[in-house]
Amino acid sequence: MKDPRVRLRNPVVAALLAFAIPGAGHWYQGRRFKAAIYSVCILTIFVWGMILGGGQPVYSQLIYRSEGMAPTAQLQASAPRMKFSFGYAAQVLVGAPAWPAIIQEMRIRNTDARIDWIDGPIESDFQGLLSSEFGDRTSKIVTGTISLNPANEQGSSIATGTLHAVLADESVRDYSLGGDIKLGREVFGSPRREVRCFVAGQDDEGREVRLQLEGSVSRSFVDWFQAPRDTLELDRLNGALSQNFDIGSVFTWIAGLLNLLAIWDAAEGPAYGYGDEEEIPDDDEPTPAKKTD
């Protein structure tokens, strides 16, 4: 309902601003009280959802592994098969806070993943498994710190480095790394980047053997924030955060849908009018019977 007292200025500009940042369209129109309500309420619900969901409820695409030989979607060299996440249709309405998901999707689509290549040195914490390459394939759980370097400065498919490992029995050992490397995609919606390489070690009888290291190193924030992820990562999130991940996701959807009301209000004005109109009684209300003498 358009009321002459409500100054909409340029409604298209206001709607676009409201879409970009909740409340910005109303601020532009000089409707400061409503701008404050929209920005505080919508952004608080969105940020709250992000916190509940471990910073990961927003993503535009779900990745499926389409390469039979690749153990996971992260370690797939060819372009991943992606499917739109319907939750993002609501989340994107919150505007700029959900736009990084589009940038991350473009980065995945436009970048060739070289999973058997290391560009530069990696220093990180590590968690994973150490197993013998042949024989009984017994595995040990390993945490610690890892240092990986390409065999030459321009990058290489061969990595060298060291692993300062803490084993499950709390014993500490240092291993030398060397040989072919597999490194998960640079951009992927998980804070952990998968890594596989070989380790020179000794078996229980002291003989030199080659061990295989499978695990993950940390991925930089700009490479995982709002990036497409696979169902394995969603399983990990549900396991780690339980119901909070789902609640956080719903909160971000609600924030986006609420901003739709704000965009509409910026373009068309308040739906029921200014608010000081006389209330019209419902037709259903019984009218008092007239007294007849």
């Binding site: 009301l261 509409w264 608010g275």
Partner: peptide, 21 residues
């Protein structure tokens, strides 16, 4: 708090007067 936020945003989109909202 979620209901409070939704109520405020919904009513802000219905009316213009702060008191009425």
């Amino acid at each position: 708090p979620l209901t409070a936020g939704i109520s405020l945003v919904y009513c802000a989109s219905r009316f213009e007067m702060p008191e009425k909202i």
